[in-house]
Computed example of a mutant assay.
Amino acid sequence: MNLPAKTIIASLGAVAVFVIGMAAMPQPLQLSDRTLGDPELLTEVRAHIAATPGARDRLSVAVIDGESLRFAHFGASDTTEYEIGSVTKTITAALLADAIARGEVEANTHLGSILDLGSSPSSALTLEELATQSSGLPRVAMSLDKLPSILVALVLSRDPYGSTLEELIADARDVHVGGKAYRYSNLGFALLGQALAKKAGTPFPTLAEERIFRPLGMESSYVPMSKNDLRDGAPSGYTSSGRATDPWTLGADAPAGSARSTLPDMTDYVRAYMDGTAPGIGATEPRRPAGARSRIGYGWHITGEVTWHNGMTGGFASWIGFDRGADRAVVILTNTSNSVDSLGLSLMGAE
């Protein structure tokens, strides 16, 4: 018996939906019971996580109080690698502050003087506007031709980014630029990082290595821009419902969120901001309003006395913050895309 073409197409569509649904089906996942670290901190973290919904697996936490350092690992160790997501923006922001100190650029340098943006509105944006999330750029450059591939990537837990530098610049030429109020933009930080790299005459991952990671002894930290850049054994993570995800390397958007690191490296990183030795330390100075209760420096948000940033990719979440007055800092890294913001604020005593 021959089936009508419409029936065949409908059947194939149903099969496709079923296959995608099976691939997306979440797996049971909970916080690992393999632990290492300070008993009290382990107990405090476990209790907080137990009260929040969603899949959990590996989790690493560091709490600094003056000269004291406590840590807690769940299913992890000091060598466990995590995607730090948008905490990468603090690295890009530090590179801006450092480049200003070196005399390579100025805060009011126009983006179009570095990248070929023609006469587009984006060309008139300043580096400081990009760094303080007040450029008016949208979170991402979105168009109808990109939408299908982005939706497929999200459904299948793949990296939805991956533009080349040429494509990123083309997006910046075409994108609508809005008002200059606070508006969080991954696109803005991708352009900022690529502009700084071009000005320095080196790829962005090399720039981060030479000016941030190496001076701070962060040997386990790096910025991949493709899967080929991942180190051997680089782990992937899980969605908030427990689906395995591909790594996010982001292509030319890497300055907005593709860095990978470990708990010891990020602890050294935040210590350097605490004691004032971090390259580009000026990035933490508050410069503009960022909502009703916060201000923003270059990348870093300042709420009350806490300077912080969070991060999230398709399979990881992170939070880093410090209070110089209280001499306290917190680093949290996890391999599921469930927010750890409330845990970070709680451990900072700011919740």
Rank of each mutant, 00 (worst) to 15 (best):
A292G: 06
R231L: 10
P255K: 05
A99H: 01
L144Y: 10
V330G: 07
F316A: 05
A16H: 02
T334W: 04
L69Y: 13
S32K: 02
D265K: 02
S258M: 07
W308E: 14
T92C: 09
L168Y: 13
R288V: 13
L345A: 14
D57G: 10
T277M: 08
A51I: 07
T132M: 13
T277I: 05
A317T: 14
F316D: 08
P279M: 01
T206W: 01
G13H: 04
L127Y: 10
T109H: 08
S185D: 06
A317D: 06
E209C: 05
G118D: 02
R214H: 04
L59G: 10
S318K: 06
I150K: 08
A10V: 07
T284I: 15
G13N: 04
Q133G: 04
A244I: 09
S220I: 05
A99C: 05
V45T: 13
G66P: 11
E166G: 15
A93P: 00
T303S: 14
S134A: 02
T126Y: 06
V306G: 14
L168H: 08
A195W: 03
L147C: 07
G315M: 10
A51G: 10
L147K: 01
Y269I: 10
T90C: 04
P53L: 13
V105Q: 07
L196F: 04
A72W: 12
N228H: 02
Y182D: 11
P279W: 00
A234T: 04
G179H: 09
E81A: 11
G257C: 03
H110P: 06
P148H: 10
R214T: 04
G37I: 15
P26R: 12
V152F: 13
E44R: 15
F204D: 02
V155H: 10
F316P: 01
R46S: 15
P148W: 13
P286S: 08
G179K: 04
L130I: 14
L250E: 12
D116P: 05
E285M: 15
M225L: 14
G276R: 03
I84W: 02
D174E: 15
A131Y: 06
F316N: 01
D145A: 11
V87L: 09
A97D: 00
D57T: 07
D57I: 06
G201I: 03
L36G: 03
G37Q: 15
V223I: 01
L345R: 12
D265Y: 01
P4F: 08
